[in-house]
Design a protein around this nucleic acid. Sequence first.
DNA 1: CGATGACTTGAACGCCATCAATCGCTGTGG
DNA 2: CCACAGCGATTGATGGCGTTCAAGTCATCG
Lengths: 223, 223
Amino acid sequence: MANEQDEKEKNSRLVFGDLPDAKVSPTKFNFLKDAVIFRQAEPAHYVYQVIEGAVRSHKLLSGGRRQIGAFPLPGDVFGYENGEVHRFTAEAIVDSSVRHVKRRTLEREAKNDAVLVGTLLKITTDNLQHVENHLLLLGRQSAPERVAAFLLEMHDRLKSAGAMAMPMTRRDIGDYLGLSLETVSRVLSRYQRQGYLKLAGPMQREITVTDPVGLAEVDCAPL
Amino acid sequence: MANEQDEKEKNSRLVFGDLPDAKVSPTKFNFLKDAVIFRQAEPAHYVYQVIEGAVRSHKLLSGGRRQIGAFPLPGDVFGYENGEVHRFTAEAIVDSSVRHVKRRTLEREAKNDAVLVGTLLKITTDNLQHVENHLLLLGRQSAPERVAAFLLEMHDRLKSAGAMAMPMTRRDIGDYLGLSLETVSRVLSRYQRQGYLKLAGPMQREITVTDPVGLAEVDCAPL
DNA sequence: CGATGACTTGAACGCCATCAATCGCTGTGG
DNA sequence: CCACAGCGATTGATGGCGTTCAAGTCATCG
């Protein structure tokens, strides 16, 4: 919690950096916008890490309904499944580059490396924790609360001084929050009118949170 | 998937049975209806298993809003957190008995026991998978779909020939599905009228699913 | 420069929550 | 033993929040 960026770099180094060069892929794989990185139910041969760009991982339902589970950003590890298959589909949100390592390799190395085991466990735990918090959001929070939570999450993760350049569309945000794209748009507009944030850029994708404390109050504190 | 009951017994034996007797608690702990087993944010010293009865694990939000994450039933392991604290509160739904083992003990043993490591990983993975599926349900499914999914889940887990004796209230079900208790009641009534199930018993807590295939069609298949 | 895609905003609808009344079962005390 | 209080479930009425449908604007791209 103290320094998320350091954590991320530590994970990165441990999972991707400390393996023998022959076994880890030094190559960057490039994916164009909307390209599929892996599909749900495919065998999970690789574990991935975003180098640059942004990814969305989602599940589909009949009728074109979609639930996005996470937005892996640069530094984030994704697609690490303990099961045999991927449980989400992962796509590049914008042109992105990614590196990967064979899951089998990772597991083999882990047998002789207690620290690596811990790192993998931490990735799973963080994953689990994020999903558990998202349960509460999807099950019991109102639209304004959800959008506030999203903004605060991104505010934290991007730790940008100033405007955040959101790579995802309003529809992506909606599918992450269990809302329609119109509702997301309306709530963002309202927050701008109320002075919580400022929208800018060509598609209003640059968001500057001007009042994180106010948003935290809206995103009703747990308990 | 082939035989869930066997899986459960295997996990049970590996986590609770194969440890030196001195280290595993042979005692049954009894909890009265609505008693708290552990609380969210408490240090997670123990891992638990339901022996008999039923448990609910939940998170709270302001305004009395509650999201139940799981209903551990006999044989199920719960409260296994890789982090230092519990992320849910666990309560007995009805008078229940539970056994537990120290997390530290488990971790120590795991260092010399690759199989135990696998078991713990599997518990975490199952956990993760369940929560991920629940995300989709809470984010994108309609009330009738959610109730159908719940019925099918219970139908699978209780593998009872005939009536299932639901230990939880309509409110518990609602808080699990992100619905109001009234909506749960209405949908159940409608399903009974439509011949999908039969409600019986003092508080209509005995549910017999008469048409699981029909319910599976309602609970819109993923893709 | 027309076409496409993303965003916003308005209007109307609908699903589900909320409020409220009733019923049935359980347990308790007169 | 029975009246009554209390809890859970059901069912109806109403309303609101968010979805859906529909324009209209703006930026990007062929």
